[in-house]
């Protein structure tokens, strides 16, 4: 195992731990209620207030609750799942037939994407406008491009290795 692999594995495990902690915090804040129930309550409140001609700010605040729950749960699940994919990348790293420098660059891009994507998703709760969405989109795109590059190297590598047999 190279030092790059070891660092990536450590980073992936830290991300898994972060994802678990986000889940912990969310579960404690919402008193262990599930996402469908939280969304239903928020939708009902927002729609009821609108029907009763409540103030615009109050209706928006109720609607924003559903928006917030979705973002937090998305961040929680995506951090852990992408970190699991990063662990897989660590395991297949030696089989990726690309120059070491390019492999390392792709792995760093993947890791950067896995940090930027959930941060962007969480930032959408607090930052109005497109900047937080752009951060999440850039993070997701980094993950996709880096994984596609590594997949290319992996397929090339396994094809070359399979040839002699």
């Amino acid at each position: 195992m190279s030092s790059t692999q070891r660092r990536l594995a450590a980073a992936a495990l830290l991300l898994v731990a972060t994802g678990i902690l986000v889940g912990f915090a969310h579960a404690a804040i919402v008193r262990y209620n599930t996402l469908p129930v939280l969304q239903y309550r928020a939708h009902w409140t927002a729609a009821s207030l609108a029907t009763q001609h409540g103030s615009r700010e109050v209706i928006q605040a109720a609607g924003h609750k559903s928006y917030t729950y979705t973002r937090v749960v998305d961040a929680h699940t995506h951090i852990i799942k992408v970190a699991t994919v990063l662990l897989l990348v660590v395991l297949v790293y030696p089989l990726i037939s690309l120059p070491e420098k390019r492999k390392r660059t792709l792995a760093i891009l993947f890791l950067a994407g896995n940090c930027a994507f959930p941060l962007g998703v969480l930032a959408e709760i607090y930052v109005r406008g497109r900047s937080a969405q752009a951060l999440a989109a850039v993070g997701a795109m980094l993950i996709i491009v880096a994984f596609a590059g590594m997949l290319w190297g992996l397929l090339w590598g396994t094809a070359v290795r399979a040839e002699p047999s």
């Binding site: 190279s2 495990l13 912990f24």
Partner: peptide, 30 residues
């Protein structure tokens, strides 16, 4: 249960830190 998993993951993380590098990983994975 979640705390136990967290402990296991963080323990595995510390176990990786400073572990000796293995040169036979690539061949064995292949």
């Amino acid at each position: 249960g979640g705390a136990l998993v967290l402990l296991g993951v963080l323990g595995s993380y510390t176990g990786l830190r400073g572990a000796p590098l293995r040169s036979d990983f690539a061949g064995e994975t292949s």
